[in-house]
């Protein structure tokens, strides 16, 4: 068990390092950050000057390891655009996004899992078809557009919710719904297929032969097996919520990490963009690790080998 945890942790660390390196190369090497920073109208001289001032002329490997060393010491560098310590910037903006991501995950769980379970209990019934139609439609709605529609509906036509900002819990209702809705189809489908598969398995037949039926059968014999893959996917979805916050925060004017990312990109603020991509990747990797551990706790086939 301990070996399993260590293995997973080592893999997570390796992924985080590779991702940070790849991002660094893409942002600093495959493209020319100096000319991006200088803007479209800059003369070659100005670009060259920027290149020297920011040290873009030095070998990219050296700069990567400097950056990595900085991260290890807690020094995330200086933002070009905000003229602030990146770490301070991130810490200021993080709580809003964390709150948004967690509430979005709650929205996903509360809608997707019961819907998937209801659909799975009677495959091909009207309830199942309705749930699947809902999933197909939800998958096709661009989330920024869903946000704008909600603003028109709930913010303007029936003004019951605030349409921008993050100063009260009401401000989070629409953004959390929009961000959470994007994961509902995937999680719902997974719950449904997982449960259908489990309900057709031999061990469910065994349980039925022992007299289990209906809800008791579901609760005592099927749910845990069916939820094993859902746990992994939920963790992955939570990780992706941070990336997805870019759109939601920009639609609802929430000053979190997502909006910071958009502003930094538009301001060619490479150190901040680099750091945000790294942090989001790290969150994803940690969530994956958490999912592995949860799976190990729930599944004796992993726990006891």
């Amino acid at each position: 068990m301990l070996k399993y945890i260590l293995q997973r942790a080592a893999l997570a660390l390796a992924v985080a390092l590779v991702v940070s390196f790849a991002t660094f190369m893409l942002l600093n090497y495959a493209t020319d950050p100096a000319s991006a920073l200088a803007g479209e109208d800059a003369t070659p001289e100005i670009v060259e000057q920027i290149r020297q001032t920011y040290g873009f002329d030095r070998p990219v490997f050296v700069r990567y390891f400097e950056w990595l060393g900085g991260v290890a010491r807690g020094d995330f560098g200086e933002s070009y655009y905000w003229n602030k310590d990146v770490a301070v910037l991130v810490l200021e903006r993080a709580p809003v996004t964390i709150a948004l991501a967690l509430s979005a995950l709650m929205v996903t769980i509360v809608i997707a899992i019961p819907l998937g379970a209801i659909a799975a209990l009677r495959p091909n019934s009207w309830a199942d078809r309705l749930a699947l139609t809902f999933a197909v439609s939800a998958q096709a709605i661009p989330s920024f557009w869903l946000g704008l529609m909600l603003i028109i509906l709930l913010g303007v036509m029936l003004p019951i919710l605030p349409i921008s900002g993050d100063s009260s819990w009401q401000h989070f209702v629409m953004p959390a719904f929009v961000l959470g809705a994007s994961s509902v189809p995937a999680v719902m489908r997974l719950t449904r297929t997982g449960l259908i598969e489990v309900m057709e398995s031999d061990y469910i037949r065994t349980a039925r032969s022992k007299g289990y039926r209906g809800f008791a059968l579901l609760r005592r014999h099927a749910m845990r097996n069916a939820l094993l893959p859902v746990v992994s996917v939920l963790a992955v979805q939570l990780g992706q919520k941070f990336g997805g916050s870019v759109i939601t925060e920009s639609v609802f004017a929430i000053n979190g990490l997502g909006r910071l990312a958009l502003q930094s990109i538009l301001g060619s603020d490479i150190p901040t963009v680099q750091m945000l991509i790294f942090i989001f990747a790290l969150i994803f990797v940690l969530m994956n690790l958490l999912a592995d551990l949860l799976n190990a706790a729930l599944d004796p086939r992993i726990r006891i080998t």
């Binding site: 390796a14 942002l27 963009v273 994803f284």
Partner: peptide
């Protein structure tokens, strides 16, 4: 598989935004 995990870990939209903007 390792490449897959790394790709999944990257925030795709954010990276795409940054790359499109810079290129």
């Amino acid at each position: 598989s390792f490449l897959l995990t790394a790709q999944l870990a990257l925030p795709g939209l954010l990276l795409a935004m940054a790359l499109v903007f810079i290129i």
